[in-house]
Simulated scan of single mutants.
Amino acid sequence: MPSSSKTRKSDISISNCGYSKVLDIISNKWTALVIYAMEDGVIRYGEMLRRVDGISKKMLTQTVRKLERDGLVARNIIPTVPPSVEYSLTPLGETLLQPMKELRQWGRGHYQEVEEARASYDMANASDS
């Protein structure tokens, strides 16, 4: 006999779930786009700023610093005048590329279905408002 929800011990926890911790790292929309900008190798800050549509200098700086802190991005300062800064994925960061590419592929293949489901739901529940 299945246990009731009152007696069953919780087995899903935000604080203990490795998956939720990983989602915390990559779930920001800018994080994914910045990682995609580095998927082909080393990229300079200005080039990344141009490639990532809509990101501000402040947000790009915050995002790459967070990724650097997490060990996913390496930052290299080139002693030129003015100094140039290049970024690249670390070996750890590169391990994220395949699962992120799969999510991107899923999105391209199924997001239209999500939009249709939302529209259908909204129409069915419009009278509830």
Rank of each mutant, 00 (worst) to 15 (best):
95 T>Y: 10
12 I>K: 04
120 S>N: 06
35 I>K: 02
11 D>K: 12
15 S>F: 12
105 Q>A: 15
21 K>R: 15
115 E>S: 12
35 I>D: 00
22 V>H: 04
25 I>Q: 00
95 T>K: 11
31 T>Q: 02
10 S>M: 11
68 E>K: 02
19 Y>G: 08
36 Y>G: 01
129 S>M: 12
88 S>R: 15
87 Y>F: 02
20 S>R: 07
101 K>S: 06
86 E>Y: 07
53 D>L: 12
120 S>Y: 05
118 R>Y: 13
52 V>Q: 02
39 E>I: 10
95 T>I: 14
104 R>M: 14
73 V>I: 01
6 K>M: 13
74 A>Q: 04
117 A>Q: 07
3 S>A: 12
51 R>C: 08
97 L>D: 05
67 L>E: 00
22 V>L: 12
20 S>I: 09
72 L>N: 02
97 L>M: 08
126 A>W: 09
18 G>P: 13
25 I>N: 00
75 R>C: 05
12 I>S: 10
128 D>H: 13
87 Y>E: 00
112 Q>E: 15
62 Q>C: 09
94 E>M: 10
82 P>A: 11
81 V>F: 10
31 T>L: 01
111 Y>V: 10
96 L>E: 02
29 K>Q: 04
2 P>Y: 11
117 A>W: 10
51 R>V: 12
45 Y>N: 03
10 S>N: 10
45 Y>E: 03
52 V>F: 03
76 N>M: 06
87 Y>K: 00
128 D>W: 14
69 R>L: 05
49 L>P: 03
103 L>V: 04
13 S>M: 07
72 L>I: 03
31 T>P: 00
9 K>Q: 06
121 Y>V: 07
105 Q>M: 15
86 E>K: 06
78 I>N: 01
100 M>F: 03
24 D>P: 02
109 G>W: 15
92 L>K: 08
82 P>K: 15
69 R>D: 07
115 E>D: 13
17 C>W: 11
114 V>M: 11
67 L>G: 00
105 Q>C: 14
119 A>K: 15
123 M>T: 06
84 S>H: 08
54 G>C: 09
83 P>N: 06
52 V>Y: 03
116 E>K: 13
15 S>T: 14
79 P>D: 05
96 L>G: 02
108 R>M: 13
15 S>Q: 12
87 Y>L: 01
7 T>Y: 06
7 T>W: 06
5 S>T: 07
106 W>K: 11
118 R>I: 15
15 S>M: 15
39 E>R: 11
77 I>T: 10
44 R>Y: 14
78 I>F: 00
48 M>V: 08
105 Q>P: 09
32 A>M: 02
22 V>T: 07
64 V>H: 02
78 I>K: 02
74 A>D: 04
106 W>P: 02
96 L>M: 05
35 I>L: 02
58 K>A: 10
14 I>S: 08
58 K>G: 07
108 R>C: 13
90 T>P: 01
17 C>F: 07
60 L>I: 00
104 R>L: 14
107 G>E: 07
16 N>L: 14
22 V>P: 03
58 K>S: 11
11 D>H: 13
97 L>A: 04
78 I>E: 01
127 S>C: 09
114 V>Q: 09
85 V>N: 05
70 D>W: 09
114 V>C: 07
38 M>G: 10
82 P>R: 12
82 P>E: 10
44 R>H: 14
